[in-house]
Each structure stands twice: as structure tokens, then as C-alpha cells.
């Protein structure tokens, strides 16, 4: 396993910057989740690390060694792709053994290791099948086995769970967490899924428009977002952000006031009118309009949701209120 360091990385496509002067260090054995909206440059960043794209400027260093000039196959990294990218003409065993074949490992040895990797993921019985005959979850496991068979220095995972159904996603999340723990591997994981980011990452790095916004442990980023973007991006539903009269009512005049939907309480200084109620069973999402026409969302226990059109008064505990600069969006402490 190894550390990863990105120094001043830049990448543009057709004059449009996709990664802007990005520096980041991932420690040996760490699970870092890159999270951000579509088009923010997170997949490009992963491809730069893998060597599938060349940076316009900056350096990629794996274990202290700059690898900019190395081919992807020479960087000793393994990558799991969104669509699994299993070779359709090869059986599962051959798919998993393929990186070892390219590395010149003798046939018997590579088959043994491929079978071990398949067994580790609980799919040893699929060795003789072609990928087309596997379910999405099985294909995902084969892709993981192919990544870990060569014991790379670094695992790169590009939205690997985005194509599996919700139940399987939860299962695979747990599997990935277990694999990371067992292998003590350095992993960089790209996702736009908040739950994956919050549950998997030892640290998360939030990206927007090719720039790193914040890096830190998931709960820290969730609780103390450094700017409006991070505040509005993390969390489902995301943080409520209000300005003007509504912010002043909450005791934050002249700034953007933010509060998590689950931390708001009924009974307080902020007047709101209910526009929509979504009953989720375990909780109710109450959408309401506040002064200035802005929408907010509240999470209330089931059965406590008011009806549509009802007038509410909303309160936010002082410690749950975040303040952001209305100009550059930075956090104000």
C-alpha cells in the first residue's frame, strides 16, 4: 500500500478547465471519498491519478515517486469502473487473472491468485462463467476481484455502485468497508452519492467546478461546512440556506443563515407556510416557504407533519445555526 500526493494539478478540455490547481494528500491505508456534483471534475481527477489522462500542469506522486510519465499499467494502481468494464470475451477467471497475465505472472500462480480473489469476494463458483451471464452485483464483485488480485499500491473506484439497485448498494457498501479494513488498502473512491460519501470515507474531499472545497472526516465536513456550496451539497435533504428577513429572524442579519432540516424545531421566530409534505414512513419531509419566497425543508417525526397550507413558526438552536458570507459564501465563525 502507498500514499498518494497530488500537487498543483490542472487539466482542461478544449480550453475549459476541469481540474484547477488541485493539491491533495492521501495517506497510506486511507479511504478517501471524492464527492461532488456531476461535471465537477472528480472522475477526471481519478483518471489523472490512473494515468488515463495527462495533467496540463502539476504532479501525481504515488509513494513519493512522481508517476506523471508512467503508463497506467506501470503505476501499480487498480481501477474499478462505473460499468464494471469486464472483458466480455473472457470467462470470469480469465478476467480476474488478466492483470497478472500482463504482469508476466506464470499461469498456475495467476490462476491460484485469481481463485483466491474470487473466494475473498464469495464468488468462487462463478470462475467458469462469461460476464454476460452474471447479475449486476456479481459483475461488480468480479470487477473488485480483478482490482485486488494484483495487490496494487492504490485502488481507484469510479462510482462503482451507481449501477446497482438500492438493496445491493447497501450490501456492497458494507462489503467495500470490510475489504478496506481487511486489506488496509489505500483507496480513492469517486461518488456523487451522499450516503456512500458519509459512510465509506475516512475523509471526504468535496469538489466543485474542478476546485477542492473542503477535505476532512465526513462528520466534520457535515457539521462545519467551510462554505455555502459544501453546506448545500452535503446532506439529504441538504442544508437550508436563507437570507435577508428570514436570516434576520433567526438572529443572523446581513448574512446567509444555514440550518440542517433535522435540526430545526417547531416553535420559533421564523414564519413559514407549508407547501408540500412527503411522508417517508420513518420521518416526514415538510417543505415550507419563508419570507423572500425561499423554500426550506424540515424533517419531522412521522405523524407530526402539519397539513399543506398551514402556517408554521420555525426555530433553530443557536449551536445549529451556520453563517455564511453573502458575497463569497465563506463560513463566518
Amino acid at each position: 500500500m502507498a500514499s498518494l500526493e497530488l500537487r498543483g494539478l490542472r487539466k482542461s478540455f478544449g480550453g475549459r478547465p476541469v481540474v484547477r490547481n488541485l493539491s491533495l494528500r492521501v495517506e497510506d491505508g486511507e479511504f478517501l471519498v471524492l464527492v461532488g456534483p456531476s461535471g465537477c471534475g472528480k472522475s477526471t481527477l481519478l483518471r489523472l491519478i490512473a494515468g488515463l489522462e495527462s495533467p496540463d500542469a502539476g504532479e501525481v506522486a504515488i509513494d513519493g515517486r512522481v508517476v506523471n510519465e508512467l503508463e497506467p499499467g506501470e503505476r501499480d494502481v487498480a481501477m474499478v469502473f462505473q460499468n464494471y468494464a469486464l472483458y466480455p470475451h473472457m470467462k470470469v477467471l480469465a478476467n480476474v487473472a488478466f492483470p497478472l497475465k500482463m504482469a508476466g505472472v506464470p499461469r498456475r500462480e495467476r490462476e491460484r491468485r485469481a481463485r483466491e480473489a474470487l473466494a475473498l469476494l464469495g464468488i468462487a463458483e462463478l470462475a467458469g462463467r462469461k460476464p454476460a451471464l452474471l447479475s449486476g452485483g456479481q459483475q461488480q464483485r468480479v470487477a473488485l476481484a480483478r482490482a485486488l488480485v494484483r495487490r496494487p499500491k492504490l485502488f481507484l473506484l469510479d462510482e462503482p455502485l451507481s449501477n446497482v439497485d438500492a438493496r445491493l448498494r447497501a450490501e456492497m457498501r458494507a462489503e467495500l468497508a470490510r475489504l478496506h479494513r481487511d486489506l488496509a488498502a489505500t483507496m480513492v473512491y469517486v461518488t456523487h452519492d451522499q450516503v456512500e460519501a458519509m459512510t465509506l470515507g475516512g475523509r471526504i474531499a468535496v469538489l466543485a467546478a474542478g476546485e477542492l472545497q473542503q477535505v476532512g472526516p465526513p462528520l466534520e465536513v457535515y457539521r462545519r461546512p467551510v462554505n455555502r456550496f459544501v453546506a448545500g451539497f452535503l446532506g439529504a435533504p441538504p442544508m437550508n440556506l436563507v437570507e435577508g428577513e428570514a436570516a434576520a429572524a433567526l438572529g443572523a442579519p446581513g448574512v446567509v443563515a444555514g440550518f440542517r432540516p433535522e435540526e430545526a424545531v417547531l416553535g420559533g421566530p421564523l414564519a413559514a407556510r407549508v407547501t408540500l409534505v412527503e411522508e417517508l414512513g420513518s420521518e416526514s419531509l415538510v417543505h415550507a416557504e419563508v419570507a423572500g419566497g425561499r423554500d426550506i425543508v424540515l424533517v419531522l417525526p412521522p405523524g407530526e407533519a402539519p397539513s399543506v397550507g398551514a402556517e408554521l413558526s420555525v426555530g433553530v438552536p443557536t449551536e445549529a445555526l451556520h453563517r455564511f458570507d453573502p458575497g463569497d459564501g465563506r463560513r463566518i465563525d
Binding site: A50, G51, E71, P72, M79, F81, Q82, A85, F98
Partner: peptide, 10 residues
């Protein structure tokens, strides 16, 4: 992605 997987695989 198949091409890229093959490149990463060596």
C-alpha cells in the same frame, strides 16, 4: 471503459 481497463491492467 474496456480500453481503459486494459490499459490500467497493463
Amino acid at each position: 471503459e474496456l480500453v481503459e481497463a486494459a490499459r490500467v491492467d497493463g
